[in-house]
């Protein structure tokens, strides 16, 4: 039985260290930065392989387009900065220069969701899953912790074509043991249960595990799924969860429109209609505040997920008793 541990990890450190490791294994990996390379820890790759590391400065559209050119010439190009800027500032370049020609560019953005905290709404990217998800050829990943971030760096490098991965800024609870497996289009059941399934991504996975603890004390049996691959999405796992439990709750640090909840709802309503509740940022901009305070204010804590799950279970029972 998996449980969010008290041990903490750091997604950016995981990303930077594995990228440098990937660089030693593969000579065709290049890294493009946009002035935030210390923060993203891509500088670790830069120290080891300065000739394959390009800091383009505060010019994100240019950076992603240069990455496209490098990929055209046969490189695997990783390009990174904060999610507010990539993809936030350059959806056009990502669409036309990377996704349309299906190039091998891996976009990894940190500080996604509300996790940038005190910097406020301008920097809190809660739209990126939606904007990347609707672009053909683009794959979208949102790892739950440092370990899964590390594994997904390699998964991305082995997959062909464009991919977007969103990371959080703060240190985050360790969710995975060292033997977990990851693949694009897959998901992981972290805890099994029969009354309701919580499908979460990113930092919300740890909150979902805490929510499952709360619910367990009330006698509600809860399945928790880490849906780290949002596109392509693991439809089979969603359909199975819908059929097994009859009640699904999604949780994401993203606008409630267009993100994980929408992606799950698309599968549920076409293939296995059931009661569904979505936990996310309710189509509003954020504000300055500590990350934890923001999660509480915007209804993204374990207790909010638990409360949505309770509602879903009650709604299911009302229908069953008719």
């Amino acid at each position: 039985m998996s449980k969010a541990s008290k041990k903490m990890g750091d997604m950016r450190t995981g990303y930077g260290e594995e990228l440098a490791e990937l660089g030693s294994m593969r000579k065709d990996v290049v890294v493009v930065g946009a002035d935030t390379t210390q923060s993203l820890k891509t500088s670790l790759f830069g120290y080891k392989f300065p000739e394959r590391f390009f800091n383009i400065g505060i010019a994100e559209s240019n950076a992603v387009s240069i990455a496209a050119g490098l990929a055209l010439a046969g490189k695997i190009a990783f390009v990174s900065t904060y999610a507010a800027f990539i993809p936030g500032k350059c959806v056009d370049q990502i669409r036309n220069a990377i996704a349309y020609p299906n190039l091998n560019v891996k976009i990894v953005a940190s500080h996604a969701g509300l996790s940038v905290g005190p910097d406020g709404a301008s920097h809190q990217q809660v739209e990126d899953i939606a904007t990347m998800r609707v672009i053909p050829n683009m794959k979208v990943l949102a790892p739950a912790d440092e370990y899964s971030t590390r594994r997904l760096v390699f998964v991305m490098a082995e997959s062909s074509g464009p991919c977007y991965m969103r990371l959080a800024r703060p240190k985050s609870p360790v969710v995975y043991e060292d033997d977990a497996r990851f693949a694009i289009g897959s998901s992981n059941i972290l805890r099994d249960g029969s009354d309701v399934a919580i499908i979460a991504c990113g930092l919300m996975v740890a909150e979902a595990l805490d929510a499952a603890d709360i619910l367990a004390e009330e006698g509600i049996s809860c399945r928790v799924i880490d849906m780290y691959s949002i596109k392509p999405i693991d439809s089979d796992a969603i359909v199975k969860a819908a059929r097994d439990t009859g009640a699904i709750v999604t949780a994401e640090e993203h606008n409630i429109i267009g993100g994980l909840g929408s992606a799950v709802a698309e599968v549920v309503c076409e293939h296995a209609p059931c009661i569904m509740k979505r936990v996310g940022v309710k189509d509003t901009f954020g504000e300055s505040g500590e990350h934890e305070e923001l999660l509480a204010k915007y209804g993204l804590k374990a207790r909010d997920i638990a409360s949505a799950a309770r509602e879903a279970v009650r709604a299911k029972q009302r229908i069953d008793s008719r």
Binding site: V30, I66, A68, G69, L72, K75
Partner: peptide, 14 residues
């Protein structure tokens, strides 16, 4: 407005 940046990527790779 994108092509010159893409050209830079090709030239860097060369």
């Amino acid at each position: 407005g994108i092509g010159l940046s893409v050209g830079i990527g090709l030239a860097l790779a060369a």
